[in-house]
Nucleic acid binder design. Structure first.
Length: 494
RNA sequence: GCCAAGGUGGCAGAGUCCGGCCGAACGCAGCGGCCUGCAGAGCCGCCCAUCGCCGGUUCAAAUCCGGCCCUUGGCUCCA
């Protein structure tokens, strides 16, 4: 069964054919570290993580690169804020370490490299020089712009049309730029994005004297790299001229990704990325979650409040390409889904421990469910990473396990073992959920203490002292220990 | 204005590429039953869908074609 993906470039679903199946080149557009990461960022991370995991699961070798943009005016602008450091570099460093912490917390597979803009300025300058030499870029007042009219394919990703853009703002001889759609590859010292935007709109002069952070020497004088060029430079450096999958949020299609294509393909003459996958945006109350709108929920806050598994389950209940709404209700539902899976997994592994490997019981229905789950999960994932349907398959397995346990007094060892393995493989390795992972720490001691309390409670129950028994249960509950009485005695989880 | 994505039950959200298995998945909420000292979990069953609107193609459309309405995103920093 082969994987097919929806390619933004063509707008169609295509069969996935990487340059080298043993070395699939995956580039994820990372974030600008000017603030704490929020749940919208984590959505891209989680979906690209699951893509990575699925490719690896299916036998592909994956080389995953994810950049950090640590040179940006918004970062520089925060220098001097309490607790953030006095320079652009320090501020970036600060946020970068918290982002890395978030990524760990989300249980993301590590990328091969996390390149930073500040460490790739020479490569960026080289790339710009190549573009200038080839006639795709020109210098103007110490800044360098990409000439969109020189690149016939400009607009192929976003279906934008240069002529229409031109109609909106006539090019002016006074302008630093030849065409309104031209974009900065290199910004002369003192030139800010804000000034550039104004310039683009009504031709106001581009220089202002505010301090916009560090500057670097270049053939065009001191300055800073433009926004889009970094991704081209870093991905070419680490993944070569043609990469297989480029992932990013939908809001980056234009202009960012369009410009990346223009720069990279103009410079190398090769196709930049084979497949462009764009993730839908996370919304709250009908608008996208974003740093600039200030309506965001931080990753660390969410991890603390809901836990990794619930956060991941939340993301996995919608396809990567669809937009998704964040709300307390949605998180509550994700929690129910995750717990349903987790409980079924625990039920299966507990019963497995108590049944003989050579048990004679065979439950064809259970075994069929396991087989069907694997088949359906694989089908769904290969169908443009349809995680929602893959998740549904896992939930069917949960129901299958519960049915088996409900209907039998003796259990099917092999069937249960296969179910447990399936949860660990598909739910654990592919979805990155914590099946079968003990929380660590003093767990064993805590477990023993709870067992002790439950033993006491059992004797109260046997004696008919239900009030006393319920009180013990309530008090455990208050500590976060959930107690359930079953045919085989009480079980607990926390 | 231009470009893109989307409008499916109380909520959420698959299915739309490749029309029939969709009388519409999975889940949450709600209702009934079983189980239980009780509770929870679980199991069984039920409830709620003119698949945005109008028209067309077809033996057959949520799925294809055309028009319209609405929402979100992009066109400025943005995952």
């Amino acid at each position: 069964m082969t994987l097919s993906v929806t390619n933004t470039l063509t707008g169609e679903r295509e069969e996935f054919e990487p340059g080298d199946p043993d070395d699939v080149l995956l580039y994820v557009c990372g974030l600008t570290v000017s603030d704490d990461a929020h749940l919208g960022h984590a959505r891209v991370w989680t979906h690209s993580d699951v893509m990575h995991r699925w490719l690896a699961h299916e036998g592909y070798g994956v080389r995953h690169v994810e950049n950090f943009t640590d040179v940006n005016e918004k970062i520089a602008a925060r220098a001097g804020e309490e607790g953030l450091g006095d320079t652009e570099e320090e501020v970036a460093e600060q946020f970068m370490s918290s982002v890395i912490e978030d990524m760990r917390g989300l249980n993301l597979l590590r990328a091969e490299v996390y390149p930073r803009v500040s460490e790739h300025v020479p490569e960026i300058i080289d790339l710009i020089e190549t573009l200038v030499e080839k006639g795709y870029a020109y210098e103007s007042n110490g800044s360098v712009y990409f000439d969109v009219t020189e690149f016939p394919d400009y607009g192929k990703l976003s279906n934008q049309n240069i002529d229409e853009m031109e109609a909106q703002g006539e090019a002016d001889e006074r302008s630093e730029k030849r065409h309104p759609a031209d974009f900065a590859l290199w910004k002369a010292d003192g030139v800010s994005d804000a000034a550039l935007a104004e310039h683009r709109k009504d031709d106001r002069p581009v220089d202002d004297d505010a301090d916009h952070g560090e500057t670097w020497d270049s053939p065009w004088g001191d300055g800073r790299p433009g926004w889009h060029i970094e991704c081209s430079a870093m991905s070419i450096t680490h993944l070569g001229e043609t990469l297989d999958i480029h992932v990013g949020g939908h809001d980056l299609v234009f202009p960012h990704h369009e410009n990346e294509i223009a720069q990279s393909e103009a410079a190398t003459g090769q196709q930049f990325a084979r497949y462009w996958l764009h993730t839908g945006l996370l919304e709250t109350k009908g608008e996208k979650m974003s740093s600039s709108l200030g309506n965001f929920f931080t990753v660390s806050g969410a991890l603390e409040e809901f836990g990794v598994d619930v956060v991941r389950t939340f993301y996995l209940s919608t396809g990567y390409g669809s937009k998704q709404t964040f709300s307390e209700e949605a998180m509550a539902e994700a929690e129910e889904r995750w717990e349903r899976l987790e409980r079924a997994y625990e039920t299966a592994s507990d019963r497995l421990d108590s049944t003989e490997a050579r048990t004679k019981v065979e439950d064809e229905e259970l075994r069929a469910t396991v087989a069907e789950t694997r088949k359906e999960f694989t089908r769904a994932m290969n169908d443009d990473f349809n995680v929602r349907e893959a998740m549904a398959a896992l939930l069917e397995l949960a129901a299958g396990v519960n049915r088996h346990v409900d209907a039998h007094d003796e259990y099917d060892y092999r069937g249960l073992r296969e179910a447990v393995e399936t949860f660990e493989d598909l739910g654990g390795s592919v979805f990155g959920l914590s099946f079968g992972e003990e929380a660590g720490g003093d767990v064993s001691l805590a477990d023993d203490v709870v067992e002790l309390v439950l033993e006491l409670r059992e004797s109260e129950r046997e004696a008919g002292n239900y009030e006393r028994a319920d009180d013990l249960r309530d008090r455990l509950e208050a500590m976060g220990v959930e107690v359930q009485d079953g045919d085989d005695g009480p079980t607990f989880r926390y």
